[in-house]
C-alpha cells in the first residue's frame, strides 16, 4: 500500500546529526483526479526549527492536514516519536504532543482570550463529565494552575491585558499570536505552524521567533513551519524542506537549499516567488 519514494526524494535526515522525531514516508493524497500530495517523504530532527517552503499549490497545507489527521492519506506512513500517526483522528495526534496551528486563524471568537488559552491545557480532569460531578476539587485545582500558566504565556505575547476580552475583538495579528500561544498551552513536543508570521508586525514577529528559539533550547520543542518570507526562513530555520507539486524536492540547510537548481526551477516554474500570506492551497476546510 505504501508507494515507493520517488527518485526525487532526498536522503533522510541523518545529516542533521539529531535524532528524527517525525518521519513521513510516501504520503499520498488525491482529490478527484488531482494528486495534491504525491509521495511526500521527509524527516524532522528533534529540537530543530525546520521550515517548509514551496510555491503556491505545492501541497504544504494539505500535507499538514494529512499528518495531523484532518485529512486521511490515500497512502504512506507518518511516524511521530515512534508511533504511527497516519489515519488517526486529530485529537489523538494532538494528545501525543504533535500540535498544529492553522493558516487562517481559528480564534474562538465568542470566548474570552483567557478561555481560549485554558481550553488548550492538557490533563484537565474537569473536561470529563464524571470528574466534573464526582471530583470537582481536582478540576478546580487544575484550573488554578492552568490560569497561571496561561497568563504567563499571554504576557510573553503581549496579550495579558486583553485576557478578559472576547477573542473576536482582537486584531488579525493578535489572533495569530493567540493561536500560537494557545498551541503552546498544550505543552507540545512538536509544533506545526502554518504561516505563523503572516499578518503580524515585525517586532512581534521577532519576539515570536525568539520565543521559538528559547522553547527549543530549554524544552527541546521541535518546530516545523510553513513560511513564505525567505528572510525569516534563511535566518531562523536550521533546516529547510522544499515541496513542489506534492513532492519534497529538496532538503538541507538554508544555504544549500538556496543554491539548489531544482528549488530555483520550482519557484520560477511556479511563475513567481509568492508573497507571504497569499497561499491559496488547501483552503477548502
Amino acid at each position: 500500500m505504501t508507494e515507493p519514494a520517488t527518485a526525487a526524494a532526498p536522503a533522510p535526515a541523518a545529516d542533521t546529526g539529531a535524532r528524527a522525531i517525525f518521519e513521513a514516508d510516501g504520503i499520498v493524497k488525491r482529490f478527484g483526479g488531482i494528486q495534491a500530495v504525491d509521495g511526500a517523504t521527509m524527516s524532522v530532527g528533534e529540537a530543530s526549527i525546520t521550515a517548509l517552503i514551496g510555491p503556491n499549490g505545492a501541497g504544504k497545507t494539505t500535507f499538514f492536514n494529512l499528518i495531523t489527521g484532518f485529512y486521511r492519506p490515500d497512502g504512506g506512513r507518518a511516524v511521530f516519536a515512534g508511533r504511527e500517526v497516519q489515519g488517526r483522528p486529530p485529537y489523538m495526534i494532538a494528545r501525543l504532543g504533535m500540535v498544529r496551528t492553522f493558516q487562517i486563524t481559528k480564534a474562538l471568537s465568542a470566548m474570552p482570550v483567557i478561555d481560549n488559552m485554558m481550553l488548550a491545557a492538557p490533563n484537565q480532569p474537569g473536561e470529563r463529565l464524571r470528574n466534573v460531578i464526582f471530583r470537582p476539587a481536582a478540576s478546580i485545582r487544575r484550573e488554578r494552575e492552568v490560569r497561571e500558566q496561561a497568563l504567563e504565556l499571554l504576557e510573553v505575547f503581549n496579550l495579558a491585558k486583553l485576557a478578559d476580552q472576547y477573542a473576536g475583538t482582537l486584531s488579525g495579528g493578535q489572533r495569530k499570536l493567540l493561536e500560537l500561544a494557545r498551541a503552546l498551552m498544550t505543552r507540545p513536543r512538536f509544533l506545526l505552524l502554518d504561516e505563523p508570521m503572516a499578518g503580524i508586525n515585525p517586532t512581534l514577529g521577532r519576539r515570536l521567533l525568539d520565543h521559538m528559539q528559547r522553547l527549543r533550547a530549554e524544552d527541546g520543542v521541535t518546530f516545523l513551519f510553513i513560511e513564505h518570507d525567505m528572510e525569516v526562513v534563511m535566518n531562523h530555520a536550521d533546516r529547510v524542506i522544499v515541496m513542489a507539486e506534492g513532492k519534497v524536492i529538496a532538503d538541507g540547510e538554508p544555504h544549500e537549499v538556496r543554491a539548489d537548481e531544482r528549488v530555483i526551477d520550482a519557484y520560477l516554474g511556479g511563475a513567481k516567488v509568492t508573497p507571504p500570506g497569499a497561499d491559496g492551497e488547501g483552503a477548502s476546510e
Binding site: 495531523t68 489527521g69 484532518f70 483522528p89 486529530p90 485529537y91 489523538m92 494532538a94 494528545r95 500540535v99 498544529r100 496551528t101 492553522f102 481559528k106 480564534a107 474562538l108 471568537s109 465568542a110 470566548m111 478561555d115 485554558m118 481550553l119 488548550a120 492538557p122 484537565q124 474537569g126 473536561e127 470529563r128 463529565l129 466534573v132 470537582p136 478540576s139 487544575r142 484550573e143 494557545r182 498551541a183 498544550t186 476546510e285
Partner: peptide
C-alpha cells in the same frame, strides 16, 4: 466547568478544538 468550555469551543470551531486534543 472545563467540560462546558470544550462544548463552547466546538460551537466556535470544531477543527480548532480537535487540533487542541
Amino acid at each position: 466547568t472545563p467540560w462546558g468550555r470544550v462544548l463552547r469551543a466546538i460551537r466556535e470551531d470544531e477543527d480548532a478544538a480537535r487540533a487542541l486534543g
